[in-house]
Computed example of a mutant assay.
Amino acid sequence: MPVYHEGSRALQDRVGVRETADHVGRAIGDGIKPVAAAFLELQPLLVLGAADPETARVWASPVTGAPGFARATTPHQMSVTGRVRPGDPLAPALATEGVRIGTIALDPRTRRRMRLNGRLRPTPRGLAISADRVFSNCPKYIQRRQSYEVVADRGAKDPRRGTELTAHQRRFIASADTFFIATVHEEGADVSHRGGNPGFVRVDSPRALSWRDYPGNSMFLTLGNIRSDSRAGLLFLDWTTGTTLQLTGEARTLFGADGARRVRFELTEATETPSALPLRWSEPEYSPANPVPAD
Rank of each mutant, 00 (worst) to 15 (best):
R83W: 14
H76C: 08
W59G: 01
T73H: 01
A72Y: 00
A66K: 10
T55M: 02
G87I: 01
P86A: 10
T81H: 14
M78V: 15
P62S: 10
G87V: 04
V80I: 14
T73P: 01
R83S: 13
A72K: 00
G68M: 04
R85H: 15
T64N: 07
G68C: 05
S61L: 09
R85P: 07
V63Q: 08
T64V: 13
R83P: 04
P62A: 10
A66W: 12
S61F: 10
T73W: 06
T55W: 00
R57P: 01
T64D: 08
R85M: 11
G82M: 05
F69V: 08
A60S: 13
H76L: 04
T73K: 00
A56C: 12
P75W: 07
G65W: 06
P67G: 10
F69Q: 05
V58H: 10
A66P: 01
S61P: 07
R71G: 08
A60D: 07
F69I: 02
S61I: 12
F69H: 02
S79H: 14
F69W: 00
V84D: 07
W59Q: 07
G82W: 01
T81N: 12
R57Y: 05
F69A: 06
S79M: 13
R85A: 14
H76Q: 12
P75S: 02
P67W: 07
A56M: 12
F69G: 02
G68K: 02
G65Y: 05
A56E: 14
V58K: 06
R57I: 02
G82Q: 05
S79P: 03
W59C: 02
G82H: 02
A72Q: 01
A70Q: 04
W59L: 09
S61E: 14
R71V: 07
S79K: 11
A56Q: 15
T74Y: 04
T73G: 03
E54T: 15
P86S: 11
A70W: 06
V84L: 10
R83K: 11
V58S: 07
T64H: 09
G65P: 00
R83G: 07
T64G: 02
V84T: 14
A66I: 11
T55L: 03
D88Y: 04
P62N: 11
E54V: 15
P75M: 06
T74Q: 04
E54Y: 13
T64E: 12
T64I: 06
P86C: 09
S79E: 15
R83L: 09
P86M: 09
M78I: 15
P67M: 09
S79V: 14
A66N: 11
T73Y: 03
P86E: 12
P75E: 04
P67R: 05
P67F: 09
V80L: 11
W59M: 03
G68P: 01
H76I: 10
R57G: 05
